[in-house]
Design a protein around this nucleic acid. Structure first.
Length: 822
RNA sequence: GCCCAGGUGGUGGAACUGGUAGACACAAGGGACUUAAAAUCCCUUGGACCUUGCGUCCGUGAGGGUUCAAGUCCCUCCCUGGGCACCA
């Protein structure tokens, strides 16, 4: 057979067609076969695949093909996170309906995914803007309402002026919009909320089952975000006798309270009429939330004139209004202990408030007059009534017990996590299924009327506001209760709702119910989820919450949706994340055109381990292309030597062939471990490169012999099979070229023989006092005694130890001999 | 400030439980093939030194320590990246 050029383009298209015809990627329940659900985070259909997608889906595809070859019944679906603002912006700008824009983008990106050779079961494709999909968003909303997990309240919200909508807390970290990076403003609006805080404990408890299978970093980020703290609610009192509750995690310092601080928004301040105080409150309220949480923000306050009584001491202390106290957390007011809290200390110094020491350092007593900062270490209680003399750690418990027993304290747990605000003042999203009736109030849409369809014929008038509010035919609806005139809710759901349950919908994309029981119970949970770390406290937290609710409703079989999580690193070029604004974007299409999908995939896996950032390098891509070319040329050149019928007699092989065969079996062993156990694909590829290099190094005359042909055939078979999940098209083409009629896509992962992986000779190092003095080839089976004798007999070792006393000899068989002499 | 990763050749990165540091690839240099170039194939490639040897010394951010042996373990410090940061 003459050598042929590696024409990646025709090869790749040829095999994509054949695999599609043979329905290689079809996922079906096979009773008794171990399932493996492998999922990558589904994309937003922006129109073009970027390198981050390519990396994400290449890793997923490698794993799915590998697991399939390992005998698992692999489930590998994909879909589209297709609601969201960009479609709406494009519509306003170009006057294209969002649905059309989105469908076009999906068609284009789907073509790109197919062109990459990713093995998805396209029969299970879902898209979230489909009415048959989002109807279940609405259904869940109603069900969650029944369970008391949905409510509406007026609250201060994060408003993005650019996106013209509200954002959840998770989406407005540090006062910056997660999508467009505008500074968010504060607004007061009626909002729908999902009560995620009701699941705060469950979300925390679930981390225990995820440990080891999720990156520690993601768990830590979620834990911090939930921010559980346990403490005590203490009823202080106004001097008039009214209750004044505060929350503290440090009841051991309660005897050291010298003032109190309250949030400017606190309603109780309405009674304060003093001009200076009122002006202060108004000034602070005008500051944006972004400013108020910035680190440069000076802590300021003003004495409200109100006085508070400490129930433990009877002390009367001033109540300050402070800009650093948050209305949303605890009771909106705090007790301040300058002696033992850094912030309180600074505040007290600024306003000349006394400092009272109640925890002393037992090793080095503190003098209050000399304090330069708060004492926040542990110590012993002083000046603390009946608790004086005990360790402060114990005092936390004892003082809490005391307060509870006396009736002015309650143990309390607080969370930083807030309920999930899901209202969006946008058009291109799932309508919230609620009707407002003047007579009956807020009425949920009856289940039988679902879905509330999003009208597709809309006119934006070049306006960035949602058109739903102006559409009479959408707006006007009879009240489901009284039949009178009523109006629909015009707000839509946060698109993170759509992505909070899509993974379960893949199991039964066309079912009449939300999920088909049999399918969902067979396939869920996701065994291996792959995506970017940027969703650690967004999508991954919402999805866990949703799955728990679905589990409580009996809809899904598991409490946690994602058993194992892999967070892949970013794709970097010239030291920065690829982005349009940086102008360092590489278009995957260009790479495919120039080198083909197989090279693109190989480079993505070779350049860096999946968890780490990947440094894009045009030269590096060429290296991957060159490797595939080397494999191509060698296999095509020697294709006629291939035989499927082999009976290799290992004992009769010449040394060079034994060596090649050993190399092969070691490669299979290492590549298998690198993928299955370590998920380090770059070293797996390096091993296959070494094996290929070894092929080129093998004496061609030896390969011409009958034995040589058999060994070569074994190498070809195992090498191409291993290469398949990385670069499937070229592997499949070469496999066919060898005369095989089976498909690698339907093959099993190669095996190796343990005894063949053992090297016949290894290099052993002889050291004297830890320094290498000689090297020698030796059988790895030599005993410690043999090796020691060998080392001692070596010329250079003898030289090195003459005149010295040998104190000790350490022998590691197959590795080294270290002679300690002096 | 707190927590978590990480710091290895000119570059991306290897080195699994302490046991030959630098696998594999890129770049660079040399050779073969060619009228020539590209492609391909082969060789060299951490640094310094000289007596050019199957040579000596140095070398994994810095400094100490444990050990026969440290990139790997321990302590202190420096730097980079990420997360958290008025949450009472």
């Amino acid at each position: 057979m003459p050598e042929q050029d590696y024409n990646f383009d025709s090869i790749e298209q040829k095999w994509q067609k054949i695999w599609a015809e043979r329905e290689i990627d079809k996922c079906e329940i096979i009773e008794g076969k171990q399932k493996y659900y492998l999922l990558e985070m589904f994309p937003y259909p922006s129109g073009r695949l970027h390198m981050g997608h390519v990396r994400n889906y290449t890793i997923g595809d490698l794993m799915s093909r590998f697991m399939r070859m390992k005998g698992y019944n692999v489930f590998h679906p994909i879909g589209w996170d297709s609601f969201g603002l960009p479609a709406e912006n494009a519509a306003i700008k170009n006057n294209i309906p969002p649905a059309t824009w989105t469908e076009d983008n999906i068609a284009n990106m789907k073509k790109q995914l197919v062109r990459m050779g990713f093995s998805y079961d396209w029969r299970r494709e879902i898209t979230t803007f489909d009415r048959d999909y989002y109807r279940w968003n609405q259904w869940m909303f109603l069900k969650m309402m029944e369970r008391g997990l949905v409510y509406k309240k007026k609250s201060s919200v994060n408003w993005c002026p650019q996106c013209q909508t509200v954002l959840a807390n998770e989406q407005a970290e540090n006062g910056i919009c997660w999508r467009c990076e505008s500074t968010v403003e504060e607004k007061h609006l009626e909002q729908w909320f999902f009560k995620i805080t009701a699941y705060a404990e469950d979300l925390l408890a679930g981390h225990e089952t995820l440990k080891g299978n999720w990156p520690e970093q993601v768990i830590t980020m979620q834990r911090n975000w939930i921010g559980r703290s346990t403490g005590l609610r203490i009823n202080f009192a106004f001097d008039t006798g009214e209750d004044f509750p505060i929350y503290t995690t440090r009841p051991d310092t309660v005897y050291g309270v010298t003032f109190m601080v309250i949030a400017p928004e606190h309603p109780i301040l309405d009674r304060v009429k003093d001009r200076a105080v009122r002006e202060f409150i108004e000034r602070i309220k005008r500051q944006s939330s972004a400013d108020r949480v910035s680190d440069e923000m000076e802590k300021e306050g003003i004495d409200s004139g109100l006085r508070i009584v400490n129930p433990f001491t009877g002390d009367v202390v001033p109540l300050y209004v402070g800009n650093f106290v948050l209305m949303e957390y605890g009771t909106g007011a705090i007790m301040a202990v300058p002696a033992h809290d850094t912030r309180d200390f600074a505040f007290a110094k600024k306003y000349g408030i006394p400092v009272k020491l109640v925890i002393d350092n037992p090793d080095k007593p503190i003098r209050v007059a000399e304090m330069e900062d708060a004492y926040i270490e542990d110590g012993v209680c002083v000046d603390s009534g009946p608790f004086t003399g005990i360790k402060n750690r114990e005092a936390i418990e004892k003082i809490s017990d005391y307060a509870v027993q006396k009736g002015f304290g309650v143990r309390e747990t607080n969370y930083r996590l807030r309920d999930w605000g899901i209202s969006r003042q946008r058009y291109w999203g799932c309508p919230i299924p609620v009707i407002y009736c003047d007579k009956c109030g807020t009425v949920p849409v009856p289940e039988k009327d679902l879905p509330v369809e999003l009208p597709l014929q809309v006119d934006f008038h070049g306006d960035s506001r949602s058109p739903l509010g102006q559409m009479e035919e959408f707006l006007n609806v009879p009240c489901p209760v009284c039949g009178g005139r009523a109006r629909r809710e015009t707000e839509t759901m946060d698109t993170f709702v759509d992505s909070s349950w899509y993974f379960a919908k893949f199991t039964s994309p066309k079912s009449k119910e939300m999920f088909d029981k049999k399918e969902v119970n067979y396939w869920m949970p996701v065994d291996h989820y792959i995506g970017g770390i940027e969703h650690a406290v967004l999508h991954l937290l919402y999805a866990r919450f949703f799955n728990m609710v679905m589990h409580d409703m009996g809809l899904v079989p598991n409490r946690e949706p994602f058993t194992r999580l892999l967070t892949q690193g970013m794709v970097i070029k010239d030291g920065a994340k690829m982005s349009k604004s940086k102008g360092n974007v590489v278009d995957p299409d260009d790479i495919i055109k120039k080198y083909g999908a197989d090279t693109a995939r190989l480079f993505m896996l070779f350049a860096s381990p999946p968890q780490k950032d990947l440094d894009w390098s045009d030269k590096g891509v060429e290296g991957s292309f060159r490797f595939l070319g080397r494999v191509w040329r060698f296999v095509t050149k020697h294709a006629e030597k291939y035989t499927a019928n082999r009976a290799i007699d290992g004992a009769a092989l010449p040394a060079s062939l034994t060596a090649l065969r050993g190399e092969l079996h070691r490669t299979v062993m290492i590549v298998t471990g690198d993928i299955a156990e370590r998920m380090q694909f770059n070293t797996a590829i390096a091993r296959m490169m070494e094996l290929t290099n070894a092929l080129y190094q093998t004496d061609e005359n030896k390969l011409e012999t009958p034995q040589g042909k058999e060994v070569l055939s074994e190498v070809f078979e195992k090498l191409l099979t291993m290469l398949f999940p990385f670069s499937p098209h070229i592997a499949e083409e070469l496999w066919q070229m060898l005369g095989n009629t089976t498909l690698l896509a339907e093959s099993t992962w190669p095996s190796y023989e343990e005894k063949l992986t053992v090297r016949q000779m290894v290099e052993v190092v002889f050291q004297v006092n830890g320094k290498i003095r000689a090297k020698e080839m030796a059988s790895p089976s030599l005993t410690k005694e043999d090796l020691e004798a060998m080392a001692m007999a070596h010329e250079r070792i003898k030289e090195s130890i003459t005149g010295k006393q040998v104190r000790k000899v350490i022998v590691i068989p197959g590795k080294l001999v270290n002679i300690v002499a002096g």
